[in-house]
Each structure stands twice: as structure tokens, then as C-alpha cells.
């Protein structure tokens, strides 16, 4: 399973999302869209919106820190 998080360093929900992933022992790639403009464009294209955080799990996208949706896609209980 490939997990990518698009985030900004100053967004409180991004911090919580990443902490949550770590707690659940999910390894992920962190894209800082405040520095990486290409990643920012990719995030907007993939999620169809401009807010962070966005989590990409294989080819599915979760907008925001939506625990229910994340758990389902990550197959967590």
C-alpha cells in the first residue's frame, strides 16, 4: 500500500493526521506543498480541491483528517 500525505507545516490537522498515521504504524511519504509547487499542483488535480491535508492511498484520495474514511482504506479496525 502506497500512502502519500500532502500537507503544510503550519496546518494543525496535518500534524494530527501524521501523528495518527505514525501511531497506527503506517509509513507514508510527506509532501510539503508549501515548498513543493509541483506536489501542490498534483494534489489539486487529484483531490479536485485546494485544502490540506490530503492523503493518497494507492489511487484513492481522502480530504481532511477523516478517520472513518482513512481506516476503511487502510484496512484498520
Amino acid at each position: 500500500m502506497k500512502v502519500t500525505v500532502y500537507s503544510t507545516p503550519t496546518c494543525p490537522w496535518c500534524v494530527r493526521l501524521k501523528e495518527w498515521l505514525k501511531q497506527n504504524k503506517i509509513s507514508f511519504e510527506d509532501m510539503d506543498v508549501s515548498k513543493n509547487e509541483k506536489a501542490a499542483q498534483k494534489m489539486v488535480e487529484k483531490s479536485g480541491q485546494m485544502g490540506v491535508p490530503v492523503t493518497e492511498i494507492d489511487d484513492k484520495v481522502v480530504v481532511g483528517f477523516d478517520v472513518t474514511a482513512l481506516k476503511k482504506l487502510l484496512k484498520l479496525k
Binding site: 503544510t8 503550519t10 496546518c11 494543525p12 490537522w13 496535518c14 506543498v33 508549501s34 515548498k35 509547487e37 501542490a40 494534489m43 489539486v44 479536485g48 480541491q49 485546494m50 485544502g51 490540506v52 480530504v63
Partner: peptide, 17 residues
């Protein structure tokens, strides 16, 4: 919402470069 409207400049400002 999320398509231009944001309630968190701290979060989303860098996306409006």
C-alpha cells in the same frame, strides 16, 4: 468549500502562490 473557500489561512495559504 475547499475549492477556493477556506477557513484556515494558516493551513492553506501556500496553495495560493
Amino acid at each position: 468549500l475547499g475549492k477556493g473557500i477556506s477557513y484556515c489561512a494558516t493551513c492553506d495559504a501556500p496553495l495560493f502562490r
